[in-house]
Computed example of a mutant assay.
Amino acid sequence: MELQLGMWQYLGMIKFSTLSDDHPDLAHSPLLRGALLTLQYAQTNGSIGLTQTKAFKRVFVHWAVQNFDWPGKSAEEMFRYNKVINEYEFPPLEIIHFLLISLRLGRHFKGEFRPTKRGIKLAQSPGHLFAELIPYFVLQMDHSSYARFENRPFGKWEVWMNVINVEADQGTTEAALFEIFYGEPQDWHTAGWREMAVFSACVLRPLEWAGLLVETREEGGSKQICHVFKTPLWRSAINLDTDNMLRPISVQ
C-alpha cells in the first residue's frame, strides 16, 4: 500500500514504548548494545582513558571494535587494513560517546570517561536505556554531522517514519522509498546518487543503527539493490499514526 503525498500533512507524533529489560527484541539494536557495553566496561574497569582531544583511547576503541558486533564493521574487516584504530575511525563508537555525554550517562573527569550514577543504573536496565537513548539519537541528533555529506534531506521524522512504517512492512527498497518521498526515481547508479546517499545516511542508517530497520544488499544485474525491512523491535517499540494501515501479522 502506498501513501499519497497529500496524506503527509496529517502524519503526527512518534511515540516510543518502554520495553521490559528482558524483552527479546532489544537484541536488534546495535546502538543499545554498544552503549550497554561501554557503560559496563567503564563500571567494571573504573573508567575509560581519554586522549588529549577527549576521545576514547585506542585500547578501548580496539576492544569496542572486537565486541560491539556492529553490522558491516566486523573486527576482521576493520583490522584488515588498519592495525591501529582511533575513535573517529569507528563512527558508531564516536556517536555512542557523544550520546552518553549528552544524556549525562557518563562524564569526563581528569582525563577519563566515567559513568554517572544514572548511567550505572541504566546500564543494568536495557529497556529504560533504550527509551532514553534511541528517541534522542533518532529524532534529535543532526545525522548530517557525522555523514560524509553536508546536506540534509528535506523532510521530517514524523513523515519519514509513518511512511516507512507502511511501505517497509512487507519489505521495500531504498530506491522505492526515495521515490515515494521525493518523486524522482534515483539510485546509486543515476545522476541523483548524491541525494540518495544523503537520504540513506541521514534517515535509513540511523534507523538501522537504532535497530528499527535492517538493510540487505543483493546484485541485480549490473546494479546493487538495497532491500529495507522493519525489525521486530520497530513493531514492539514504536506507535505511529499509520499503524492502523498495517496488515495483521499472520501466526503460523
Rank of each mutant, 00 (worst) to 15 (best):
Val61Arg: 01
Ile96Arg: 02
Lys15Leu: 07
Glu150Lys: 14
Phe56Ala: 08
Phe16Asp: 00
Gln66Phe: 09
Ser74Arg: 10
Thr51Asn: 01
Val61Cys: 01
Thr38Met: 03
Trp209Thr: 07
Met7Pro: 04
Val198Glu: 01
Gly211Ala: 02
Phe181Asn: 02
Leu99Trp: 15
Arg152His: 04
Val228Leu: 07
Asp169Ala: 03
Tyr81Ser: 06
Glu174Gly: 10
Val65Arg: 02
Gln4Cys: 13
Glu150Trp: 12
Leu11Ala: 14
Trp234Ala: 05
Pro30Asn: 10
Asn45Ala: 11
Trp209Cys: 15
Gly46Asp: 08
Ala237Arg: 06
Met1Cys: 05
Phe60Asn: 00
Trp63Thr: 01
Leu50Tyr: 05
Pro206Phe: 12
Tyr88Cys: 04
Arg58Val: 09
His62Glu: 01
Arg148Met: 08
Leu213Met: 10
His108Ile: 07
Phe154Leu: 12
Asp241Gln: 15
Ile180Met: 10
Leu11Met: 15
Leu5Glu: 06
Ala237Val: 00
Phe98Pro: 05
Arg118Gly: 14
Arg58Lys: 13
Ser222His: 14
Ala64Ser: 09
Tyr182Thr: 11
Lys54Gly: 04
Val138Ser: 08
Lys117Thr: 06
Asn244Val: 13
Arg33Thr: 15
Ile120Tyr: 12
Val198Lys: 04
Glu195Phe: 02
Trp209Arg: 14
Tyr81Thr: 09
Pro24Met: 08
Ile101Arg: 06
Tyr136Ser: 03
Asp169His: 04
Glu167Ala: 05
Gln252Phe: 15
Glu195Cys: 01
Ala237Ser: 08
Asp25Tyr: 02
Arg235His: 01
Phe16Ile: 04
Gln224Cys: 06
Tyr10Phe: 15
Asp69Gly: 05
Leu212Met: 03
Arg80Tyr: 00
Phe137Gln: 13
Val84Pro: 00
Tyr10Gly: 08
Gly119Met: 08
Phe109Glu: 14
Lys83Leu: 05
Gly127Pro: 12
Pro24Gln: 09
Leu11Trp: 12
Arg104Pro: 07
Leu122Ser: 10
Phe98Arg: 13
Lys110Thr: 13
Leu50Glu: 02
Asn86Val: 02
Arg148His: 10
Gln43Asp: 11
Glu218Ser: 13
Ile249Phe: 02
Phe56Lys: 10
Leu177Asn: 04
Leu139Gln: 14
Trp63Val: 01
His28Ile: 00
Arg118Thr: 13
Arg58Ile: 07
